[in-house]
Design a protein around this nucleic acid. Structure first.
Lengths: 148, 148
DNA sequence: TAGGGTGCATCCAGATTTTGGACTTACTCG
DNA sequence: CGAGTAAGTCCAAAATCTGGATGCACCCTA
């Protein structure tokens, strides 16, 4: 069965439709770091202005960012994280940690992150129910048949 | 200072250079789900063949996947996760959970994931050092100056 | 041994995106 | 007055993505 094209219905795929593009996620990163303005984002992400403008539009449309006017006349805008945008924190953190681990140069991770507790941040994914760590081996997909 | 273009040196950006593309991450997802062959990945991701072929090449080159021959003569290959590839699990999980939360249709999350403990998987990010949850508000960037 | 199916890959041409630089507009500052 | 800033937009060239067709080397079955 399942002969022809049959793309998986999947939350990963859906998420990637909204934030699965380099400049989109880097824009979100900037907002997390406190840079809310277009010019600053261009500078710190390195994105082409057109591309960044398009991404910001679609992030606003997708409900990840909110665009607020902070000046009239020359109309000027800032971007803020919405609730859903805020919840992208684990995605960004996971990507940062992966990069810290596998792509750091000899100088080590380029951006130091410190947890409230005072230690350098290293994160772990745990199950909300039982508190045990989650890894690729500790999860099952009960709805998947063998051919999936 | 920091007048002109000055893209941030950043692990998030570096990670996105390697896996920051929809089809790349969906290919990795398929391998996590146990689908290791090209044809199957085309089918389940919906990616164009050429694009998927290019992504697989770059994932192999980037050390995320390993390409192993499983048949000679008609040479046939399978893709396996390397160590670094395996460590992308938190990235995929974070994306899936975000999608489950914000993009699920009326039927709820399309793919059920169950933790070893028997509960439906909901993950939480905690600090390895102190065990407390990590959120956008609980981390600091000691190396960042005000203008960053 | 012909016919049909599978699996990986490549070629192509057209459509879409991305890119960087120049430009616009309306201020503010010195 | 001239320079600078901010948030874009405009543009044309370059790069990339896309889907369909094609090739190839098997395997299986009748």
């Amino acid at each position: 069965m399942a002969k022809a094209k049959d793309p998986r219905v999947c939350s990963v795929a859906r998420s990637l439709e909204v934030v699965g593009e380099k400049w989109a996620l880097l824009a979100v990163r900037e907002v997390f770091l406190g840079n809310r303005r277009f010019e600053e984002m261009v500078r710190r992400t390195g994105a082409p202005r057109d591309t960044l403008a398009a991404r910001l539009r679609s992030l606003v449309e997708g409900g990840i960012l909110e665009r607020r006017r902070y000046a009239e006349h020359p109309e000027r805008f800032e971007y803020f994280l919405t609730g859903p945008g805020f919840d992208l924190y684990p995605v960004i953190t996971a990507l940062r940690e992966w990069g810290d681990k596998y792509l750091a140069g000899p100088d080590g991770p380029p951006l130091l992150v410190e947890h409230r507790c005072g230690n350098r941040l290293r994160s772990r994914l745990v199950c909300e129910a039982c508190g045990e760590p989650i890894g690729a081996g500790s999860t099952r997909f009960p709805s998947l048949s063998a051919s999936d």
